[in-house]
Design a protein around this nucleic acid. Sequence first.
DNA 1: AGATGATTAAAACAGTAGTTTGACACGGGA
DNA 2: TCCCGTGTCAAACTACTGTTTTAATCATCT
Lengths: 213, 213
Amino acid sequence: MAIGGRNYTTQGTKERILEAAGEVFVAHGFQSATVREICRKAGVNIAAVNYHFRNKENLYLATLRYCREISFKKYPVYPDMRESEQPEERLRSFVHSFVFRVLEEGKASRFAKLVAKEYVQPSKALDVLVKETMRPAFTRLFAIVRQLAGKGPDDETVRYCCMSIVGQFLFFLYARPVLKRLFGKASFKAEEIAAIAEHITLFSLHAIRGLKG
Amino acid sequence: MAIGGRNYTTQGTKERILEAAGEVFVAHGFQSATVREICRKAGVNIAAVNYHFRNKENLYLATLRYCREISFKKYPVYPDMRESEQPEERLRSFVHSFVFRVLEEGKASRFAKLVAKEYVQPSKALDVLVKETMRPAFTRLFAIVRQLAGKGPDDETVRYCCMSIVGQFLFFLYARPVLKRLFGKASFKAEEIAAIAEHITLFSLHAIRGLKG
DNA sequence: AGATGATTAAAACAGTAGTTTGACACGGGA
DNA sequence: TCCCGTGTCAAACTACTGTTTTAATCATCT
């Protein structure tokens, strides 16, 4: 049961299932997704899921990890940036990589879409997601905003600012179906994504400076 | 089939179903919610749903409308405010009623929670939601922000600002399960909600002023 | 070649979903 | 009193779900 897997066809089957599972879970969510559709898309037998992943829930967790790896490999937390950088640049870098991770048209944005569903309909997976992904990200962001805000504002204010920044990401993470219906726009070119990231950066920098005093 | 309903027991059954449906749809979402659980909570027979609402999807739409009415009756769009008011105050009013509609502990926040699920897993209901609820709200917000920003920024910048503001609402609409795990906080007292609304107002006002020039 | 263990395939299983059915209760009008 | 439409109820129906079973296939090592 998935001990070594020296057989190359196994790797092929497992990966094909993970790819198809990514598609289907993004499209329908954990509950509504069916292993039958996943297997049909992957071109494998139904029993393969239970053989390679034990059950549906385990496949979901594996898919979450698989998609996270893809997303963070393409858009790292700090792309070629030193800790000693100016806080404005660190915020800009944080925002840009985050926004691309969310808005990109491709496999790298699957993780963000799965996380979106997890927010709204939490499962056991959310605990590990918060622990491994969100809490570290929030800690990094808090340090950046604290540096930008200076010593004036208290911790609660800084925390609220972080939430305001994250909220702006969430808009584009969630509102895509609404944007499509409001403005007829469903996908973004790389330059547009960069423009959005730059807007969020400037909007937040101005706000923090204003709150500073 | 739900023509008049002069029988008072009918009204009781229909409303009990709608109340229970609100609870269950908020808790599990449309797909995962079962009519059996709804009927058990409502204390009615399973067949009552199909008798009064034809089918599950129709019950869902009715529940959405029912919850929207409750939410907007308690927190109107412009609570005792004239159009001639200063734009700062109009933004503040817009933000406050929105935030309360989202964060309140009670039946009035059910609509926001249902909409949140609808964003992530759109169904046929989203089209009518966008048309009847989101588009008018976005138009009102756009007018306020345009007035705040002056004639300098172009329409796209103003639109991005609106998205940044709405995004901050979304954070608290979505991130509650995460906030619970991050800070151990799941519910907010009225003063805290007001403080959050005030933060979002100030954060956004500073940002818009900064972008103004 | 034959044995071995990992992998795949088809079929069946048990549980649950939404929906439908047909019988029954009840209140008011002819 | 009889009838009829509205509303309620228990039970069944059909479809689909995740999972398991059993047998067949394949690559690899002796």
